[in-house]
Design a protein around this nucleic acid. Structure first.
Lengths: 223, 223
DNA sequence: ACCTGAACACCGTTCAAGT
DNA sequence: ACCTGAACACCGTTCAAGT
């Protein structure tokens, strides 16, 4: 009996890849990318920093796994059943919402090429193209365009969140940016100055979706 | 006379923002992103690492400047005169070629939001939209779609180059990737497995351009 | 005003030593 | 087999001291 209780307790306490990844996600969400170190992680798991290396290869491995895990949840939810155009929009919005909730995912997605998380997005987007009537030999280009657009926005959005003071909101950030745009040299930046007002009022999510729709329209047009 | 000669010599030796940025670009090009530290930079400039801080604010400042400088050369070249669709393609290809030649630029572009280098791309792309007949209130969305797509590909391409052994070429890298795609679980990755063969043969530059054309077609279609 | 370079406060990663 | 934690080889950045 004492034996069993002890074993059960041991098991709860035991380090594992899953527990490490879970703790890493918690730190990333609560305190941001810069707060995740092997020392803080070891402290939270009440172990030595070297112990972590028994379960994960290195920091890149750890970050790729956290990213894939968080993204996988969003990927399985949306995009079931729906009409293909709607499915693509749902996948894209799923990714957007994950990055809105966990900006560090956006950073991570553009750090390693063709990492598992990116493959998931590529697969789910690509799976819709057949139903959209895209010829086989153009499917790769179309999927690549959609994925690269999604990754590009992810990166910029995450970068914005990274330099956002924790309390301040996105609209204040956009207002500051818009002001900076308006102060650019008129001769060099006529276009940027013209759209500065739109930056202030714009909704990131809507603009993101507008880009997806543009690519979908392009796919439909060049079919 | 002696005085003048000395002054001239001093000037050549003197540290300056320009010389620092120039040396940083040389290191980045020759040895990659990980080789650029304030210590290697100071050694190459034959000075102390602290001296660099007199001329640049910090490493982010330095990297943002190197990125803007390298990109600015490409930006001013292409895209003059031409028909607006061609101009957009020329701008995009200009960015692609810069990143092909200096992969670290791709990494850098997605690290800070709306940095000078990104503003340059946005301005040049946006300036073509009026001529393309895009209504004012949609110009921001269209420019954003094009820029985010360009940045997304930049990031992936640079990430690929980062883990490429220095001697090996891109096609070997693609072959390895294609093999890995073919070994993914059939049930989970049917689409990716189907396009794996295309990955092996595909041309990055052409695929990049195909994406630009897709967005341009979408812009034309939803006009 | 500009430069030097040691010092500070960190990192990721390794590894001998423990259990 | 798994964990500990000191040690190693780095970083970016600061700053007293020099010229």
């Amino acid at each position: 009996m004492a034996d069993r209780a002890q074993r059960a307790e041991r098991r709860t306490d035991a380090l594992s890849r899953e527990r490490i990844v879970e703790a890493a996600i918690e730190i990333l969400d609560a305190e941001g990318e810069s707060a995740l170190t092997f020392r803080t992680l070891a402290a939270r798991l009440q172990t030595g920093s070297g112990a972590i290396y028994w379960h994960v290869a290195n920091k890149d491995d750890l970050l790729a796994t956290t990213t894939r895990d968080v993204l996988a949840r969003a990927m399985t939810e949306g995009a079931r059943g729906a009409e293909p155009r709607e499915a693509v929009r749902a996948i894209a919005l799923g990714v957007f919402d994950v990055i809105d909730a966990h900006p560090w995912v956006g950073t991570q997605l553009s750090r390693e090429p063709w990492q598992p998380a990116v493959m998931q997005i590529l697969e789910h987007v690509g799976a819709q193209l057949e139903a959209l009537g895209v010829p086989e030999r153009e499917q790769f280009n179309c999927a690549s365009a959609l994925v690269n657009y999604i990754l590009g926005l992810s990166g910029q959005y995450a970068a914005g969140a990274r330099l956002l003071p924790r309390e301040s909101d996105r609209s204040a950030f956009l207002a500051t940016m818009a002001e900076r745009w308006e102060q650019l040299a008129p001769a060099e930046y006529p276009f940027v100055r013209r759209v500065a007002a739109q930056l202030r009022e714009h909704d990131d999510r809507e603009q993101f979706l507008a880009g997806i729709d543009l690519i979908l329209a392009g796919i439909a047009a060049s079919r």
